[in-house]
Write a protein that binds this DNA or RNA. Structure first.
Lengths: 234, 234
DNA sequence: TCAAAAGTGTTCACAGTACACCCATGC
DNA sequence: GCATGGGTGTACTGTGAACACTTTTGA
């Protein structure tokens, strides 16, 4: 163990993995890097941490600065610290991931850094180790969403069961039985059935639901195992 | 977004939360801090990262340097970055947690920094935000161990079912039914029954088991929900 | 009236729980 | 032989999976 004064100092950054859903596909928000080198290359939303803020604060600030997005769900993903991960100068980065409904925030997004949504299955080349970071984020999203009511963050406030089911199917690249899906989600008691229907996607129309704000927090810890077959031990 | 050259640099450290089990209780390994200020206070095993290593490497190195421990299970816990968390100088720290069988590594531990095991329920005061870090580690341990075959890291290579059960009971502060516990664990097909018995703890003796090394990795992703009642959605 | 999508019902297999019971051994 | 802890058997309950069925409505 050595004295403080003998220690090296390093750059420290945050990167945000922003997943969005547009009703069809799971997408990732990337921007055009604004500084040299590699200016103009696709990059995660990221930036350096300042003197007085925590990485959590930095993630929120950077996201707002670069995209205009504010007040969205975020959690820490992982710290990346390979000495050569940033080719300019050694930079340690803590990655955060965020979930948003693309439609809902369409107005809010500013265009300064040319943000673009890419389908999670057709991502462009990203700078540094950002592709690796995204892979880890996808894994964590699937893992966490199976156990916690996370994915609601990706939907409008009002949504239908078929919409919710498509989202889960998009995230897990799988098809679920609608009957069982319905019952499972309703059994959580986390959803409130509304009186009106969405009639755009079907003739019969599907009832809207919303998350019960009173039960959301308590429900967060005791959610479901949503992935069929995952319970079975082979 | 700003240029690299304009950015502040920070100290960067790792801290290790080392959980151990001695057959009775779940314990935490702490050391006496070796540098001023607060020299001699109880602290997590930690140290500064060097120029050429990743935080993962640093965690392994620091652990070895300060305790002698080597080759043990470790995973990243969380990054801590509150500006005032280290009262000497701002230091960002990535915490790692490790699991070991206390008996097994008893010989290996060196005494330079006066390491001590404290029961997880009776921890001393720790420097900085280390108590908070430990709390988070305890949560993550319980969360992960319910879904992955983690806790075997805390036991000798050979262990009996009653031993395994006590460990789970210690980690979760709960009592499990021995019959059901047995069947559940055996249903994973992760355990190999050995021919010899442990006769120290009972007259009849309990068969030893070991983790099947061939199946360990594949089993890691598809483990159990071990906490009774957790499956139920209320 | 028919097609399409929403939503309900029904059956089956098996996992989780509780608890009674049998087994092996040292004293 | 009996107390002690290891281990097995079993009955009950609930959940998950599969899939057939009914409902609603626009074209």
């Amino acid at each position: 163990m050595q004295e403080y004064s003998e220690q090296k100092h390093f750059l420290f950054a945050v990167d945000c993995i922003i997943f969005g859903y547009d009703g069809q596909e799971l997408k990732l928000l990337v921007i055009k890097r604004g500084i040299e080198p590699l200016k103009g290359s696709w990059s995660l939303v990221g930036g350096f941490i300042s003197d007085t803020e925590s990485s959590e604060n930095a993630a929120v600030r950077v996201l707002k600065d670069l995209t205009g997005l504010d007040g969205i769900y975020m959690e820490q993903l992982y710290g990346f610290s390979e000495p050569d991960r940033d080719t300019v100068e050694r930079t340690i980065s803590i990655a955060y991931f965020a979930l948003i409904d693309i439609q809902k925030y369409k107005q809010q997004i500013n265009e300064n850094y040319h943000p673009a949504w890419f389908s999670i299955n057709q991502l462009p080349e990203l700078i540094f180790d950002h592709s690796k970071i995204v892979e880890l984020a996808k894994e964590k999203l699937r893992y966490n969403a199976a156990l916690h009511p996370l994915l609601f963050e990706l939907l409008p406030d009002k949504f239908t069961m078929p919409q919710l089911q498509s989202l889960y199917e998009a995230v897990y690249n799988a098809e679920f039985d609608k009957g069982n899906f319905n019952r499972k989600l309703l059994s959580t008691k986390l959803l409130l059935k509304l009186k009106d229907k969405d009639k755009l996607n079907s003739k019969k129309g599907a009832f809207y639901y919303m998350v019960d704000p009173n039960k959301y927090n308590e429900g967060f810890k005791n959610f479901l195992n949503l992935i069929p077959g995952q319970n079975a031990i082979k």
